[in-house]
């Protein structure tokens, strides 16, 4: 290889190794708004994932509704064809019924919490990395921009997580069970406050609740909380509105830490079946903490 070519190759290699490191250093620091590169990548990947999600869902529907049924016994072909049509109609109706129920739940939730200004969003992709608990959502058609980092994401069942990055009508949502997630919480009906820390586990979506030291009286050895105790946001982190359900204390054993007790928590939201979520864009911080147990 000529000397010039070798130099060029070395330079390209150096740049290819160093530029990502510089980008990592720059993007690894917490910042309130996405950078130009992050915006560019989101603009590139989000519509593609949204489109692919639709294509895969359509193909899956075609496959399960039609292709999978081909090859049954010959003499039943006519009956099966009729059955396919009927099954398709029933499935369509069932899907409409489920969607109707979900939308009704959303409407009911908005009525119950009028202090929350929310935008509805559809989940278009879930994490492809086994190390992060993240969703990508697309706002409903016609919704304006204005999403910001750390805005709470909820469903009628409870807290989902917060907006990590946002661009236009797309946003990445870090789930409450991500190991980086911290939510100020309080136990309903008990004088116990603490922090909900995501476990980061993929399989069970558990979170742990670390109580603050002052919650346990000096010398007290008994656990102050019991399995089934409901946890809601306390609003002290100034990110999540007060009174949103996050989950309940699980059956597992509690352990003592430097700051208090650490309990397993079962989130109130089923993260596996998330379809529609709401992003809280603004709220009046006067919501009551007393949620019925």
């Amino acid at each position: 290889m000529a000397a010039g070519g070798r130099w060029r190759q070395t330079l390209v290699g150096f740049l290819c190794l160093v530029l990502p490191l510089v980008s990592l250093w720059y993007h690894g620091r917490a910042r309130p708004t996405p950078t130009l590169v992050e915006r560019g990548l989101m603009r590139l990947t989000s519509p593609a994932q949204h489109a692919m999600s639709g294509v895969v869902a359509s193909l899956s529907r075609v496959f399960t509704d039609y292709v999978w049924l081909v090859g049954v016994v010959e003499e039943n072909r006519d009956i099966r064809r009729q059955n396919e049509v009927l099954a398709g109609l029933v499935q369509d109706r069932e899907q409409l019924r489920k969607e109707n129920r979900r939308l009704k739940e959303l409407l009911r939730f908005k009525g119950e919490r009028p202090e929350l200004q929310t935008l509805a969003a559809q989940v278009i992709a879930k994490d492809v990395s086994p190390f992060h608990r993240v969703l990508k959502v697309a706002l409903s058609a016609g919704a304006d921009d204005g999403l910001e980092r750390f805005q709470p994401v909820i469903t009628p069942a409870g807290v989902v997580g917060h907006v990590e990055r946002a661009l236009g009508r797309y946003a990445e949502v870090k789930l409450a069970v991500d190991s980086d997630s911290r939510i100020a919480t309080a136990a309903v009906g008990r004088d116990v406050k603490g922090t909900l820390v995501g476990s980061g586990d993929r399989g069970d979506f558990l979170a742990t609740f670390e109580t603050l030291g002052e919650a346990v009286a000096p010398g007290e050895e008994q656990r102050p909380l019991e399995a089934g105790d409901m946890l809601v946001t306390s609003g002290e982190d100034e990110r999540y509105p007060k009174g949103l359900v996050v989950g309940h204390i699980g059956e597992g054993p509690a352990r003592q830490s430097d700051l208090g007790w650490v309990y397993p928590v079962v989130p109130s939201v089923n993260f596996r079946t998330l379809d529609l979520v709401q992003i809280v864009t603004d709220h009046i911080s006067t919501a009551p903490l007393d949620v019925p147990r």
Binding site: L17, P20, H27, V37, D127, V128, S129, V134
Partner: peptide, 20 residues
């Protein structure tokens, strides 16, 4: 870089460095 965009939750540059 494309994977950085698709795999959510990592700082941009993570998978670019890993790929190179």
């Amino acid at each position: 870089l494309i994977k950085d965009g698709f795999v959510m939750g990592v700082p941009v540059g993570m998978y670019a460095e890993i790929s190179v």
